[in-house]
Design a protein around this nucleic acid. Structure first.
Lengths: 247, 247
DNA sequence: ACCTGAACACCGTTCAAGT
DNA sequence: ACCTGAACACCGTTCAAGT
């Protein structure tokens, strides 16, 4: 059957509709819903069209590609994640940035895959974020010689951890796969890997590579917080290193 | 035409072949080639089958799924990236780990997408890596109270930066997209974003969000090195914090 | 045991045609 | 301007059937 959905009774005829509900904004909202439900891998523009009860080609009148749609979705999730300036020193501002980013992404865990590994980030992360990071780094003592490096490290610190934390589990057979990994983890040879064996109880299902559930089911909050503090402490050391010629 | 390839003259008939060239290993090697050429997004098991001049279903006799195949490819790239124990102190070992990881991934940039954002990492990163990281962290002074956090930060520091650095550019229209971003970057309003404008020359095409080529075309080596040093310095601070009860 | 060949249930995207 | 309807060129995966 050629209908987008089989149970919807009223079929819209061609031409400009009286009630123009199919806006770009509506498409993006539905797309975010889809992404939340099925993940980036199973996300399809045909499903978005089905939810809106239109043909797939309709989507392409409002949006240029699947990629552009996902970029828009990602930037929707990111709105409001940048802290205002003037709230404390550089460490406070960066800490606030990281925490706001985490909060925003945890509301829609599947966007982490977009922000980290697809260059969607280029379109989704705002110019204001960049301006804020640079200002704060200069305030922290960054120079022409190390500003670029410090900036790149801030952006990667912001996104990197959560990209891994929220990486998707294998799609099919989630139960069997989890059981298999759990079995593999629990049957590690104590003779070959004594240290791992001794500390496995601390790590099982709460550490990268050794877990069978991802961050949306088992958040790694304390590790993320450690990650932030490690980065801030390290950045301070890094920025104070080449300052022998300044003072 | 039903043939997998149209130009190959000799078509294999069904049944067990005399020269059994289609091994699991051969499939993984061809898959790595494919991944290097087309990227994770365009990678298809049908293309792998075409390269081997067999039907797609043949692949599925040797390998359980596309996902499992990519996991195998990733772990192939990772072999040998773990430094041997006993070479210096914990900082030296971790630095060596990060540099080896970078070297291995740069040889096959498209696996970065697999290692970072898909949970392929679970299958691809080895148990030996875990054992090494834990040992070295204990040597560095990690306790039961912070081992898990430190471990998670090491793994994320290893993969996070490069996942972003090697994130794929938009597939279609790469030239137009690059020009568009370049234009957008160069036309930033100096009044609204004065700091960014002043330092844009340092960042253009060499910084996250502000670049139009990815890490395989424009490597961010100095930033990665800074990232490593920032992490190591920060980790040292982190591990020495709760040690007031020890000495 | 290992492969063919066909089929199933999907995709993203394009484009003429309608109103 | 905005949508239909059909089509194109693909996918991953399954499964009976061959040898």
């Amino acid at each position: 059957m050629p209908m987008p959905t089989s149970d919807r009774p009223a079929r819209r005829s061609a031409g400009r509709p009286a009630n123009s509900t199919i806006t770009r904004e509506a498409i993006v909202n539905v797309a975010l819903d889809q992404l939340d439900r099925v993940g980036a891998h199973a996300f399809s523009v045909r499903d978005v069209a089905r939810s809106l009860d239109v043909y797939p080609s309709t989507i392409y009148w409002h949006v240029e590609s699947k990629e552009a749609l996902l970029a828009e979705v990602a930037s929707l999730v990111m709105t409001g994640a940048i802290p205002p300036r003037g709230s404390g020193d550089w460490k406070t501002w960066l800490r606030s940035l990281f925490k706001r980013y985490r909060k925003a992404v945890l509301k829609h865990p599947n966007v982490a895959q977009l922000l980290g590994a697809q260059l969607v980030s280029n379109a989704s992360l705002s110019i204001d974020l960049i301006e804020g990071v640079i200002s704060v780094l200069l305030e922290a003592g960054a120079t022409e010689a190390n500003l670029r490096e410090a900036y790149n490290c801030v952006i990667s610190a912001m996104t990197g951890f959560m990209t891994m934390e929220l990486a998707p589990m294998p799609l099919d057979d989630p139960k069997g796969w989890a059981a298999a990994l759990e079995g593999r983890v629990r049957s590690i040879d104590p003779l070959e890997h004594p240290t791992l064996t001794r500390h496995l109880h601390l790590l099982a299902n709460k550490a990268f590579i050794l877990r069978w559930q991802n961050g949306s089911q088992v958040p790694l909050t304390s590790s993320f917080n450690a990650h932030v503090e490690i980065f801030l402490a390290g950045l301070e050391v890094f920025l104070s290193q080449e300052n022998d010629s300044v003072d």
